[in-house]
Amino acid sequence: MSCAETFMTYALRAIGIGPRGLPKVDITLCDQVVLIGSGMLWNLYFAVLALLVGFMFANGLAFAKGAPSPLVRKPAQWFIFLFRGSPLFIQFFLAYELFVMLPRDGINLLGLHLPTGNFTRAWLGALIVLILNTSAYSAEIFYGAMRAVPKGDLEAADAYGITGWARFRRITWPTTLRLAWPAYTNEAIFLFHATALVFFSGFPAWQQKGDALYYASYFAERTFNPFVAYPVAAGFFILVTLCIIGVFGLVNRRLNRHLPQQSRTRLRVRPKVIR
């Protein structure tokens, strides 16, 4: 099979379009690149959705953690401690076992029928865990940034008669986002890297539909040669990481556009030391 044919056959194998069986003998470099790239679709799916939903949830959580009322603050603090203090790997296992325990034929809630079958599937179950996890980490980042908003900005807002919701929406939140953005970029990168854990942690890869690392480890086991499959997967991850840095850099530029040229914070990508 030529490489173009392999591409046509396996490019969408990870989402179930393509032959049932994976290549078993005479595995070429092309097979590995195409299938691992196909698995990358899952990593992107998990990362994009978890980041989108998690971002909104994290803002709420950060606001709750900074709330004066302990009724609001304590649950947020515990939630953040729970998800930041324990390994994601254990969270995946725990969530999977929890979802398995749900009744098979769905839950009836106030006359509403909720199907539960999909919770044990990676596309939903693992996504929920990733959303909660990234929310906790991002909330901590946003909370720190919210407390770092310059006092002078808030006093100026008060002096202009901007109060309450308008002050939060127009002064506090944009500055928070601007201050938090470099750290949040790291969080996005590491969430993306964390998506590689999904299929190694309880959630089964149904019909061998898995992510990039799932296929990489499949090939490494098949050929007993880790020196091809893993570097290929690593290459894909580096490529997407660079894209994330690019996109987040554009957002960073927009967030800082009102500042004089010298005081703009350049986006510097730090390693995982914030996790």
Binding site: I189, H193, A194, A196, L197, F200, L213, A216, S217, A220, P226, Y230, A233, A234, F237, I238, T241, L242, V269, P271, K272
Partner: peptide, 15 residues
């Protein structure tokens, strides 16, 4: 370690 997930190293390095 900046661009590559640590789990890839954990699978790759021992082997």
């Amino acid at each position: 370690v900046r661009g590559v997930p640590d789990i890839i190293f954990f699978l790759f390095v021992p082997l």
